[in-house]
């Protein structure tokens, strides 16, 4: 039964051919509309000497009833 299913050429040898049709800014817009959480640790170092540590737990999302703005007006910024 599974034999008649054609294997989708996902692992084709050559890389993705041709640019993906969507401009990156539209992808970012959709990501924001869905909402994304970025969490992680960054260390900025020079010559293997760690200087600055950045610890991220960021929610990036459009404001909607699902993700309300923390304060009513535009806020301080």
């Amino acid at each position: 039964m599974a034999a008649d299913r054609a294997v989708v050429p996902w692992d084709s040898a050559e890389p993705l051919s041709g640019p993906i049709g969507v401009p990156l800014v539209d992808l970012l817009d959709r990501v924001l509309a869905t909402g994304v959480v970025v969490s992680g640790d960054l260390v900025i170092a020079i010559a293997d000497v760690p200087l600055v540590r950045v610890s991220l737990h960021a929610l990036l999302s459009s404001v909607s009833e699902r993700v309300p703005a923390p304060w009513a007006d535009g806020g301080p910024l």
């Binding site: 640019p19 049709g21 401009p23 990156l24 800014v25």
Partner: peptide, 11 residues
């Protein structure tokens, strides 16, 4: 132009 990713902004 981001190569295989396409472009940054719409053309």
């Amino acid at each position: 132009d981001l190569g295989p990713l396409g472009t940054l902004l719409p053309r």
